[in-house]
Deep mutational scan, measured.
Amino acid sequence: MSIQHFRVALIPFFAAFCLPVFAHPETLVKVKDAEDQLGARVGYIELDLNSGKILESFRPEERFPMMSTFKVLLCGAVLSRVDAGQEQLGRRIHYSQNDLVKYSPVTEKHLTDGMTVRELCSAAITMSDNTAANLLLTTIGGPKELTAFLHNMGDHVTRLDRWEPELNEAIPNDERDTTMPAAMATTLRKLLTGELLTLASRQQLIDWMEADKVAGPLLRSALPAGWFIADKSGASERGSRGIIAALGPDGKPSRIVVIYTTGSQATMDERNRQIAEIGASLIKHW
Rank of each mutant, 00 (worst) to 15 (best):
G251M: 12
R176H: 06
V72C: 04
V31L: 12
A16V: 15
S68A: 00
R238L: 11
F22L: 15
Q265R: 12
K144A: 14
P172I: 09
S281E: 13
T131R: 00
V214G: 06
I3G: 09
D83T: 03
I283H: 04
R202K: 14
D177Y: 00
G251H: 10
L160A: 08
L218T: 03
R41I: 07
S201L: 05
D113N: 05
C75Y: 02
I206G: 06
S240F: 04
G239D: 06
F149Q: 06
G216R: 08
S264I: 06
R41T: 08
L191H: 06
S281D: 07
T139I: 11
K30S: 07
T107A: 11
E61T: 14
S80P: 01
R7G: 14
H156L: 12
F149V: 07
D207E: 13
G242L: 01
K109S: 15
R81A: 09
W208D: 04
K252T: 12
L160V: 11
V257G: 00
A235G: 09
A182V: 15
S96F: 12
F13Y: 13
I256F: 04
C75W: 07
K144T: 13
T262R: 08
I3L: 14
E166Y: 12
A15K: 06
A222D: 07
A40K: 02
M268G: 05
T179D: 00
A225R: 13
I206F: 15
P172K: 08
M153A: 11
L89K: 03
A222L: 06
Y103D: 04
G76S: 10
M180K: 13
Q265T: 13
L10D: 04
R92S: 08
M67L: 11
Q88P: 02
E277Q: 09
V214E: 04
S96M: 11
A9D: 07
N173A: 10
R220Y: 00
H94C: 10
E166I: 07
V72L: 02
T126A: 10
A245I: 03
K213C: 10
R118G: 14
K252V: 13
K144E: 13
A235S: 12
D113T: 14
S240L: 05
S201P: 14
N50S: 15
E175L: 11
L188P: 00
E195G: 11
A16L: 15
G90A: 15
I283E: 00
K232N: 01
M115R: 04
I229H: 00
L89T: 04
K284S: 11
G263S: 10
T186V: 15
P20T: 09
A77S: 11
Q86S: 12
L150C: 15
A23T: 06
R238T: 15
K213L: 11
V82A: 10
A40L: 06
P25T: 09
I256L: 08
E270D: 09
F14R: 02
W227A: 02
D174E: 07
Y44T: 01
G90F: 11
L79V: 04
H94V: 14
D83V: 01
L160Q: 04
C75L: 03
D212R: 05
L10R: 04
A9W: 14
V214S: 08
V82N: 04
D174H: 03
A211C: 09
R241I: 00
I283N: 02
D177M: 02
R41E: 06
A170R: 09
D83P: 01
E164R: 03
K213I: 09
W163Y: 11
T187V: 05
G226T: 08
L100W: 04
L19N: 15
I11Q: 07
M180N: 13
L167W: 02
R202S: 12
D99N: 11
E61G: 15
